[in-house]
């Protein structure tokens, strides 16, 4: 029981990171209708920024976090402007391959700048954990869960209440109609990329505080997992990304503890396939009505 609770906590921890990354995937997909495969590598950039700002330069944690978010935001928006904007009307596959090209570009740039060895990033979370009923709760878990819950609430409020949030909903519903209603589509898409990248930066910081090492390919696997989480929840749906991320994290850590470490990934992906067979648009995805 004690082990189960600890694993559940671990799963929630990992799931929160997945959920934060998945939010970026899902928001970009909802609005620009593209799979941004470079999103995972933004996490890696965030982690390297943290390495330079906090571990090497010793800046205070709030400055480091702010710096990470700003660097990722600028990077995300400029990627969108340079690589994706000219392809707004191209076929989805062309955009997908471009996104993969951007992902390779970020990885190989990191390889050239920082080398292929993984480097240690010190955790910026200094809160002490506690033991409750025999269960160890680490400071990292408390902060990760707290930050994720706060971000999700703020994001939901932002989308429901603010003008920009409503514009995002409108663009994801119908780009053409939104433009006719006076929504600045380009600005909205840029804002989406900025928010998604900032979330990825936060996810990168939290991921580093739990795992501690960063290499050029650090972002790839969490990126793919988060993509799976976004699809599991129904891609394009924000509550879906949160649910999918948390579920995926819990399933993964349970499978690792109780079944097999090697097969954990296979189980995660297997569950995704089974879910999609019964609910082809994910858990919370909208059903697409086919018109003849």
């Amino acid at each position: 029981m004690q082990q189960f609770c600890e694993q559940l906590l671990n799963g929630l921890n990992l799931g929160s990171v997945y959920a934060l990354i998945a939010l970026g995937y899902t928001m970009v997909y909802g609005i620009a209708k593209m799979l941004n495969f470079a999103h995972g590598d933004i996490i890696m950039v965030g982690a390297y920024t943290l390495l330079i700002a906090s571990t090497r330069s010793g800046l205070p944690w709030y400055v480091s976090v702010l710096l990470c978010a700003v660097v990722c935001c600028v990077l995300g928006v400029s990627i969108e402007k340079i690589a994706y904007k000219p392809l707004r009307n191209a076929s989805p596959l062309t955009v997908l391959i471009t996104a993969i090209g951007v992902s390779y570009f970020l990885q190989s740039s990191a390889l050239l700048i920082f080398g292929s060895n993984k480097q240690k990033v010190d955790s910026i979370i200094k809160i002490k954990g506690f033991t409750f009923a025999g269960i160890n709760v680490s400071g990292e878990s408390i902060v990760t869960l707290g930050v994720t819950v706060i971000i999700m609430i703020v994001l939901t409020l932002f989308i429901k209440k603010t003008k920009m949030g409503k514009a995002m909903l409108a663009v994801s519903e119908d780009k053409g109609a939104a433009q006719l209603m006076g929504v600045n589509v380009n600005a909205t898409i840029s804002a989406t990329f900025a928010i998604g990248s900032a979330l990825a930066a936060v996810a990168g910081i939290l991921y580093m505080s739990s795992y501690g090492f960063v290499g050029p390919y650090t972002g790839a696997l969490p990126g793919i997992k988060a993509f799976v989480a976004a699809v599991l929840g129904g891609i394009g749906s924000i509550p879906g990304a949160m649910l999918g991320g948390i579920l995926l994290g819990i399933i993964e850590s349970m499978a690792k503890t109780y079944i097999s470490t090697d097969l954990a990934d296979a189980i995660v992906f297997g569950i995704l396939i089974v879910v999609l067979l019964f609910r082809p648009t994910g858990l919370l995805g909208k059903k697409r009505v086919e018109k003849v």
């Binding site: 000219p86 391959i97 471009t98 390779y104």
Partner: peptide
């Protein structure tokens, strides 16, 4: 070391040039 970097840039440029108006 620059191989993958050039490859990725070539990929992006080819895609952009093929479909940008």
């Amino acid at each position: 070391d620059y191989r993958m970097l050039i490859y990725s840039i070539a990929l992006i440029v080819m895609m952009l040039s093929n479909s940008s108006p």
